[in-house]
Design a binder for these strands. Structure first.
Lengths: 141, 141
DNA sequence: CTGACTGCAAACGTTTTGCACGGTA
DNA sequence: TACCGTGCAAAACGTTTGCAGTCAG
């Protein structure tokens, strides 16, 4: 119980910090993404349907757009078809298991890469790194 | 003129090497992607409309699917909305200029990254790296 | 000659838009 | 109360599919 309240409070804090209106739908969206990690729009829709049977997909897209603008969410592009989102946190790479489909966060140092690219005259503001392969779990089997 | 013939011949060689049927549409698609570098499906469609006014978008999607299967093309996911493709070549990173939109190929050594990720128990088969920022051209202005 | 490729049209899934209503600040 | 957020419906995209005619091998 306490946990649920904590999550709700955390979501409200995120919204207030960005001067956004606090609505149940927005709290729920943050909560779902926070729980699921890397979640696609239709997964979000299905999950939120449980709590808000009358919710519209349009609402979800609108909230996502606002959250992307305000840098609350980050879009991850592991597959061409489906967009996925995660709460913005420390920069990290993603490992996509091509067997079970699970996505893991990898905290790697990209200092070496940045050094290489700066020496070529580029000054990147952002970086996205995706790895593909079988994860330790799937390798064991 | 000689150049055009060379391009055409190169495209035919690619198709024959993969035991695919050689059609004018496929040759043109390879040529366009080869010329444009990183091109989106609708750009391909518009360009090919010039040469083949009656071409169907479905044909382009079908050819792209086959080429992806045969590893002639590589899909690049720099934006969520539009899919882009490039001819497959040496592994490399992409730099996307957030000002002019130009995409550059960067040949970097990712040995250091791979070492880090292997030490965590992962064995990636593939890797995609995207950088975002202003390119040297746009910085100068 | 035969199977594969193309073009067409329709279907499909996802995302966007406009409007009226309802809720937050 | 005033404005912003939501839900609904329709439209706009991008992509996929099935079919019939055509072409490359």
């Amino acid at each position: 119980m306490m946990k649920t309240i904590d999550h709700k409070k955390a979501a409200m804090d995120i919204l207030r910090a960005k001067a956004l209106k606090v609505t149940p739908q927005r709290i729920a969206l943050i909560t779902e993404i926070s729980n699921a990690g890397h979640i696609s729009t239709d997964q979000i829709y299905k999950k939120m349907k449980n709590e808000f049977p009358s919710i519209s997909a349009a609402t979800i897209y609108k909230i996502i757009d606002i959250f992307l603008d305000k840098h609350i969410l980050k879009e991850i592009r592991i597959t061409a078809g489906k967009r996925r989102y995660e709460l913005k946190k420390e920069p990290h790479a993603h490992y996509v298991c091509t067997i079970c489909g699970q996505i893991s966060d990898l905290y790697l140092s990209s200092e070496d890469l940045l050094r290489q690219i700066r020496s070529k005259g580029y000054s990147p503001a952002g970086c996205e790194i995706y790895f593909y392969g079988s994860c330790p779990n799937c390798c064991d089997k």
